[in-house]
């Protein structure tokens, strides 16, 4: 009797049995995951840049240590995710070279500039907020190493959002009119890119159905976006800020907020590499890699030398 591997695989998924690295899996499942996890890792790493921009200019020590800790966490998230992706058979260096050559994508949101201190507030509140919304369901993804990495990530994210919101709150409730205006301006610039983070509308997201069947994805883009908007509107009210969408209003019948049309043309332009900071972000990553080469080489040389010395010691003994 011939056993259909693909059927057995799907049965495991349907029964919520996690897939582990050495288990059989369809090639397409492996490729889909590898692309998703490595893109996710790249996003965490590139995501350090917009906020890193403000570390030296944080307004006080409390804000500075929080921002450093947050940016360091994002580095950690990138590392957990690269490790998870490596279990699918691609080396770290290959993934990095795909990022550096522009072949691999990362989240478009990080191609926007951080022009004022209020952007640190808006990013934590909105960008990390949207990321949390996306990431919580991924803690139950069918691939074990990905799900485990996401559990760690999610545990750390909540501080990111809270510190961002606290920055906004301080500007809005204790700040002068100029500072409050700065907070509103940051919301105006980050709102639409943030709700685009959930990806294209469901009818334009052709791979979603398969990812749902494989339980890599559990909740659709539009559903997540709606959830995010529903929880975020009251948060903006507390700040006394106005979300820049004139069509935003509560729909009693649906039990959700209605919102305006998203400018997907802008989204596609940024994905295609024409966002305000695409070139700058990529250059920063490539420079970091190239400038770190001598350090990597020195560490390798030192490790080899030490291994040799140790081997000599054992022989002598």
């Amino acid at each position: 009797m011939e056993i259909n591997l693909e059927e057995v695989f799907q049965q495991k998924i349907d029964n919520e049995i996690k897939i582990e690295p050495r288990d059989w899996m369809p090639e397409k499942y492996r490729k889909t995951l590898l692309r998703q996890i490595s893109q996710h890792a790249h996003s965490e790493i590139v995501g350090m840049l917009p906020e890193g921009n403000w570390i030296t200019r944080a307004p006080n020590l409390r804000r500075k240590v929080a921002l450093i800790a947050k940016v360091q966490d994002e580095a950690g998230h990138g590392l957990y995710l690269y490790s998870a992706a490596e279990t699918l058979g691609m080396s770290r260096d290959e993934m990095l070279s795909e990022l550096h050559s522009g072949k691999a994508k990362y989240s478009s949101i990080f191609n926007y500039p951080t022009v004022t201190w209020a952007d640190m507030g808006a990013i934590g509140w909105l960008v990390d907020g949207a990321a949390i919304m996306n990431q919580v369901p991924l803690c139950r993804a069918s691939y074990g190493p990905y799900a485990r990495a996401m559990v760690r990530v999610c545990k750390e994210e909540s501080f990111h959002q809270r510190q961002g919101y606290e920055i906004m709150l301080t500007l809005c409730t204790k700040g002068n009119p100029a500072q409050k205006a700065m907070a509103q301006d940051a919301l105006n610039r980050w709102w639409w890119p943030s709700i685009m983070m959930f990806g294209p509308n469901d009818e334009h997201s052709p791979n979603s159905a398969q990812s749902m069947k494989w339980k890599i994805k559990r909740i659709s883009n539009d559903e997540l976006r709606q959830k995010f908007i529903d929880v975020t509107v009251p948060q903006a009210d507390i700040l006394g800020l106005t979300i820049p969408d004139k069509d935003l209003k509560w729909n009693e019948e649906r039990g959700h907020y209605d919102f305006g049309t998203i400018d997907w043309e802008e989204f596609n332009q940024v994905v295609a590499g024409n966002g305000p900071c695409n070139k700058q972000r990529l250059k920063a990553r490539v420079d970091a890699w190239n400038n770190g080469e001598w350090v990597r080489d020195a560490a390798t040389a030192y490790a080899e030398k030490r291994a040799k010395r140790e081997a000599g010691k054992t022989e002598a003994a």
């Binding site: 590392l79 957990y80 490790s83 490596e86 485990r148 760690r152 560490a299 030192y302 490790a303």
Partner: peptide, 11 residues
């Protein structure tokens, strides 16, 4: 808990 890359045991 996971894995990482390093040149040697100390790192």
């Amino acid at each position: 808990v996971g894995s990482l890359h390093a040149a040697d045991v100390q790192m």
